[in-house]
Simulated scan of single mutants.
Amino acid sequence: MYVIAIHGGSGTINRSEITSEQEEAYRQALGDALDAGYTVLARGGSALDAVEQAVRSLEDNELFNAGKGAVFSANGKHEMDASIMCGRSLKAGAVAGVTNIRNPISLARTVMEHSDNVFLLGSGAEDFAREHKLAREPDAYFYTALRAQQLKEAQAANKTQLDHSARNTGKGTVGAVALDKDGNLASATSTGGLTNKKYGRVGDTPIIGAGTYASNQTCAVSCTGYGEFFIRAVVAYDIACLMEYKGLSLKAACDYVVQDKLKKMGGEGGLIAVDGAGNVELPFNSEGMYRAWRNAAGEGEVTIFA
C-alpha cells in the first residue's frame, strides 16, 4: 500500500474565471507533480523522498505561489517559507523568509538532516544553504509579470492579500503528503506567502504543527489558506490529536477542523491528509483547491473546483 496527495493552494477559484487553456495548464502541472512523487513510491522509495520531489515540481512551476512562482513581498523581494516532516522519526526541518533559493523545500530537508535545529530564518538559513551548496537563482528567475501586477494592485490598495482574487485564479501554498510501502508517512509544504507582506511576516507553512505535521501513529497533513488562522488553530497537529486522543477517523478529524473549527474562527482554506491505512482526505471551505491524489491501485484524481 502506498499513496500520495498534493495541493497547489486553495481560495477563490471559480470555473467562470479560468479559461480552458489555464485550467489545462494547472491540471498538467498538478499531474506532473503527482507523477514526480508517485514514481518515487512506485519504485519502493520513501514517503519523505516522494513529498520532497512532488513539492520541488510545484516550486519549479511559476503557476504556483512557491519557488519560481512566489509572490512579491512589500520590499519587492520573494521571501519564501517551507517545512518538511518525517512521520517515522518525528524529525522536521523548516525555513522562513529565504530569498534566491531555488527549492526551499530541499533546504528545509537539509536543515532536518544536517543540522541540530528544526527552524532556520532568513539570512542565516541562506548561509546554511550556501554551506550545503543548494541551488540558488537570481531575482530574475522568480520574476513573473502576473506577480508584479499583483504587487502593484496590493500596494495601490495598501493591503496584503492571499494569492486569490476575482481577477486572478487562486494559486497559493503548495504541499504533499504520502504513505510509502514501509508504512511511513511524511508531509511537506512550501509557499511565497502573502502578496505585499511586510515586517517579515511568516504564515503557517514553516510552522510544524500549524501548516505541516506527520506522525506514523496518526497521519500526515499539509495545509493551505490564510496562515494566521491555521497558526492559531494549530490545524495540522489538531488533526493528529483528534485521531490519537479522541479516536476520530481521518475524515471526521479533517471535517471538524476545516468545516467547523476554522469556519467559526473566520479561517478560509483547506488541507490534504493521509493516514497509515492509506485513507486520503482533501477538505476545504473555500471555493476551490488545486488538488490531486493517487494510490498503489492507480485510483485517484486531479481536480480544482468544489
Rank of each mutant, 00 (worst) to 15 (best):
V3W: 00
I4Y: 05
G8M: 01
G9F: 02
T12C: 13
S16Y: 11
S16C: 10
S16N: 14
E17N: 15
E17W: 07
T19D: 07
E23F: 10
E24K: 13
Y26R: 09
R27G: 12
Q28M: 09
Q28L: 13
L30W: 03
A33T: 10
A33R: 02
G37Y: 03
Y38K: 07
V40Q: 03
A42Y: 09
A42D: 08
R43C: 11
R43N: 15
G45A: 13
L48M: 13
V51C: 00
E52G: 07
S57H: 06
E59D: 04
D60R: 11
E62I: 11
L63P: 02
N65V: 08
A66R: 00
A66M: 10
V71M: 08
F72N: 01
N75C: 12
G76N: 06
M80R: 01
M85H: 10
M85D: 07
S89M: 10
L90Y: 12
L90G: 09
G93R: 04
A96Y: 02
A96C: 15
V98F: 05
V98D: 04
T99S: 15
N103K: 10
I105K: 05
T110Y: 04
N117Q: 15
F119I: 13
L121H: 13
G124L: 02
A125W: 03
A125N: 10
E126Q: 15
A129S: 12
R136M: 15
F142A: 00
T144R: 04
A145N: 06
A148K: 14
Q150C: 12
A154S: 11
K159R: 14
L162N: 11
D163E: 09
H164D: 09
S165Y: 06
V177Y: 03
A178H: 07
L179C: 09
D180Y: 02
D180K: 06
L185R: 06
A186P: 11
S187E: 03
S187H: 04
S187I: 10
A188N: 08
T189D: 07
T189N: 09
S190T: 08
S190D: 11
G192I: 01
L194P: 01
K197H: 06
K198G: 10
Y199A: 13
R201H: 04
R201G: 04
G203Y: 01
T205C: 09
G209H: 05
A210I: 06
G211Q: 05
A214G: 08
S215C: 14
N216Y: 07
Q217P: 08
T218S: 14
C219Y: 04
C223F: 00
G225I: 00
G227T: 01
F229Y: 14
F230L: 02
I231R: 04
A233P: 03
V234P: 04
V235Q: 01
D238E: 14
I239L: 11
A240E: 05
M243Y: 03
M243I: 06
Y245V: 12
Y245R: 13
G247K: 02
G247H: 01
G247V: 06
L248Y: 14
S249H: 04
L250I: 05
A252V: 11
D255H: 13
D255P: 05
D255N: 12
D255K: 11
D255T: 12
Y256V: 08
V257R: 02
D260G: 04
E268Y: 06
G270S: 03
G278H: 03
V280L: 07
P283S: 12
N285K: 02
S286M: 00
E287A: 10
R291K: 14
W293K: 02
A296S: 14
G298I: 05
E299Y: 07
T303R: 13
A306T: 09
A306L: 10
